[in-house]
Amino acid sequence: MIEALWVNLDYAASVVLFLIGLYAVIAKDNLIKKFMGLNIMETAIFAFIVALGVVDGGDAPIMGEGARAPFTNPIPQALILTGIVVAVSTTALALSLIIRIYRQCGTIEADELREME
C-alpha cells in the first residue's frame, strides 16, 4: 500500500490538503478563516483533478508547429477552469455575506454570533 501511495503521492497530498481545509471549516470560529478553509479544500480538489490529467513527459495540448506527443490530458484542465470560476463565485457571495454580518453584528466570530442570537 505504501508503495502504491508513493506512486500516487500527488493524489495523497490533495487528500491531506482537503482534510486540512475541512479542519479549518469545522474548527475555526472566525468566519473568514472558515471560508479560507473552504478555499483550501477547493484548491485541494482542483489539484487532485488536474493531477489526474498528467502524463509523464507530456507537453501542453496545443497543436500546430513544433507540437510533439505525448500531450497532457486536456479534459481535467478544462473542468478545473470551470471549477475555479465556480469557486470564485462562491467566494464573492460568501465575502458579501461576511461584510453584511459584520455591519449588522459588529463581529465575525462564530461563538460571539451564537451568543447574540
Binding site: 482537503f18 475541512l22 471549516v25 468566519l31 472558515k34 471560508f35 473552504l38 479544500m41 477547493e42 480538489i45 487532485f48 483533478i49 471549477g83 462562491t90 457571495l93 460568501a94 455575506l97 461576511i98 453584511r100 454580518i101 449588522q104 454570533l113 442570537e117
Partner: peptide, 20 residues
C-alpha cells in the same frame, strides 16, 4: 444572513465532495 452563511458553508463543502 447568518442562516445563509451556514447554508453556504455546508452546501459548498458538500458540492466539493461531489466534485471529488
Amino acid at each position: 444572513e447568518m442562516a445563509a452563511f451556514k447554508y453556504l458553508v455546508m452546501g459548498a463543502v458538500s458540492s466539493l465532495i461531489i466534485l471529488f
